[in-house]
Write a protein that binds this DNA or RNA. Structure first.
Lengths: 239, 239
DNA sequence: TCCGGTCTCGCCATTTTTGGGGAGTAGAAA
DNA sequence: TTTCTACTCCCCAAAAATGGCGAGACCGGA
């Protein structure tokens, strides 16, 4: 079977997958198809109950989660700020924590080269699709350039399926905020205190409090800062 | 030139576009390639300074923005909650406002069938890529099924370029926070108060304050809520 | 070796936010 | 029509955050 057809059949089996097991199989098929060290799909979630599938060793996955490495992993941090796929070389590995992390990853069999595609879903959902390998810079640049489109599509399909199979993990459909609530939360997010917000919106501070409290309630937030954080990460407000 | 090659060349010219004008040209080429009524890319922004390109009439674009239609447009609202491309028939057109909007859209030459791909970028960025046409349901279902992958890729590339050409909309590169500062801000973002954060990090509340203050300084934030908002929108923390 | 950045600790006064009550209007949806 | 949501206004007391003062230890780079 030609390379193109092989990829085609992987994509199709992915499109038709009807359970999480199908995603795991797909990553293994992709590892074989691209002939690389590792393929991984990683749903990033602060709560620590993140989902992932791929060819990393179980040991490494466990360690990553136990250590909450997504907080210092330059790949996660770097991808979070970008839209397009990124070569790992472009991340900031200068901090001590990042370098220690990298060394440990290599010990666990992660390749020295990597290419990651960020994917975003509704309500602030965020995931990474990564392919990584051990080779020199030129070979890797060549690989990533040649397979850019395919990798983007694969990332897209993996995330689509992951969202489909994990309804309970899906961030709750954030109840939309009313226009006034959006105004209030937005102004708080840009640093205004309540007096300034009330003044800007030309309402009394008491009225403002009603908005903040109802927004907090709708967002399930414990305090104003939490409400702002949730509204931001769910894309309900833009700063 | 074959259909496949034509699309290929459109994608390539899109990849190599170096200005917003290139996006407009691409939408026109796509309209011709797919032989449909309209192609549109629409960067949705609550602030109202949204960007769009495509083949809709200027009248309709102006009216859409002037009326703030993105607030009632079922396509925008529906896509905002979904990850995958959607046929317009799947949206909720039941409300009075939605039906009035639809009738007006058709008056302005928008086709009765549509297919939209949501795209998301960093910092809550959200855009739509839409292709629409006038035909019957079967023909449209056929079209959207056959071109699903291509449309996803086109949406991706359009958004990538739009982000590239609108740097002022993107968050500025921020000074990195120290690990402890990241811990502190992250915990504040998930709703902990200072006592809880200090306890979780096993440090005194005073030390915690030092971190919060230095993070606030680095981020140029006016208060804790502001600091959390900035750290989030710059991707320095993940919640 | 010295400098800069990070990490750690304490106290007091002031400002800001939050939690507990209650109430009336207008417009849109069922 | 009735019901529901959004929007607006008010008081008081407790809890939390902020501003300003200062101090020592550690580590890595110049």
């Amino acid at each position: 079977m030609g390379k193109t057809n092989q990829l085609e059949s992987i994509l199709e089996s992915l499109e038709q997958a009807d359970a999480l097991a199908g995603l795991q199989e797909a990553t293994e098929a992709l590892q074989n198809h691209f002939n690389v060290d590792h393929i991984a799909y990683h749903w990033v979630d602060s709560a620590g109950d993140q989902y992932g599938c791929g060819t990393y060793s179980k040991d490494w996955q466990d360690r990553y989660i136990a250590q909450n490495y997504q907080r210092i992993d330059p790949v996660v941090i770097g991808c979070y700020q970008r839209f397009h796929p990124v070569d790992w070389k472009q991340f900031d590995w200068s901090s001590k924590a990042a370098r220690a992390f990298q060394l440990e990853a290599i010990e666990y069999g992660i390749g020295n080269q990597g290419y990651s595609v960020p994917v975003r879903g509704p309500n602030g959902q965020f995931a990474l699709f990564t392919v990584n390998h051990t080779c020199d810079d030129d070979a890797w640049a060549n690989f990533s350039e040649n397979h850019r489109r395919e990798l983007i599509l694969i990332a897209y399909y993996l995330n689509e399926k992951a969202l489909e199979f994990e309804p309970e993990r899906r961030p709750e459909a954030a109840q939309a905020l009313s226009p006034r609530e959006v105004d209030a939360i937005t102004l708080l997010a840009i640093g205004y205190n309540r007096a300034q917000v009330a003044n800007t919106l030309s309402i009394s501070e008491h009225t403002l409090r009603v908005y903040i409290e109802s927004a907090r309630f709708k967002l399930g937030a414990l305090n104003t800062t939490h409400a702002v954080a949730r509204a931001l990460s769910r894309g309900l407000i833009v700063v």
